[in-house]
Amino acid sequence: MEYVVQQALNALSIGGEYALLALGLAIVFSVMGLVNFAHGEFITISGYTMYALFIFAAPTSAWGLLPIGILASITAAVVFERLAFRPIRNAPATTGLLTAFGLSIIVKNFFVTVVATRSKAVPTPEFFTEMITIGTINIQVLQILEGAVTGVALMLLLILLRHTNIGLAMRAASTDFNTVRLMGIRANQVVLAAFAISGFLAGLAAIFIIARRGAADPFMGFAPVLKAFVAAVLGGFGSLAGAVVGGFALGIAEVVFQVVLPESIAGYRDAFVFLFVGGLLILRPQGIFGQSAQFGDKEG
């Protein structure tokens, strides 16, 4: 029983992390049709900013690093948009995807050149790794936080999308950006908001990822974001609800395979997870919440 609860919590916290990342990808994609392969770099930049602050400012408590980490991720998202993605905003989706891919290579190699290929330790509050005992079950604080923060972030996002003008504009832009602009909304503002939200969500995920790894390295963003991409495809690319559901579904699948696979083939876990998703996509190519494209749809 305890084991089951423990694993269920695992699935929820990993799934929450994927959902945060997938949601950030989906928001940017739904607004401007960009597949941001450089999303993982937000995590990396967040990690190295915290590392730099830890080395040069030597704060007394690791709590102070957290908001800076999130801020760094948001800043990175906004700067990327301004410098790299704005010039190609009206280009076909493939161009955007490959630009983001190239950008991600540049950022990785920047950290290889300037810092090092090896990982650097980044402290997070000790509170995160404390254990809480409920009845007979031991839970790490980090896992509860991950679930709770993901939930709160989703709620806030929902409020933003439903009850603010910019949220309405973003939802409308996912169907027809030109009409949104005809209504007098500035395109740059909408895109900027999408990137800032995407960076914020990635920053939250980055804190959890760093808390779990305890270190930053140039390639740390890749694996989680690849999972987030697969989660987004599973949910239906561009669908926000799909991103969340896909994220949790992938988290659950990962934990199930972790538990079920025998020791000798445990190394194949990711291969099994991806094959499983591939299998689901055979049954439903457009993903869980996706709709099949029709003539005249917004090009994606």
Binding site: F29, V35, A93, T94, L97, L226, F229, V230, A232, V233, F237, I265, G267, Y268, D270, A271, F274, L275, V277, G278, L281, I282, P285, Q286, G287, A293, G300
Partner: peptide, 29 residues
């Protein structure tokens, strides 16, 4: 190809990337 060609543009690209990781995992393990 039977799986990948069922996907349209973007999703297809991500599935190809997942395929690269699958093959790599098999080589390593």
């Amino acid at each position: 190809g039977l799986v990948i060609t069922r996907q349209s543009g973007i999703a297809a690209t991500i599935v190809t990337l997942a395929w690269l990781v699958i093959v790599h995992v098999v080589f390593v393990n």
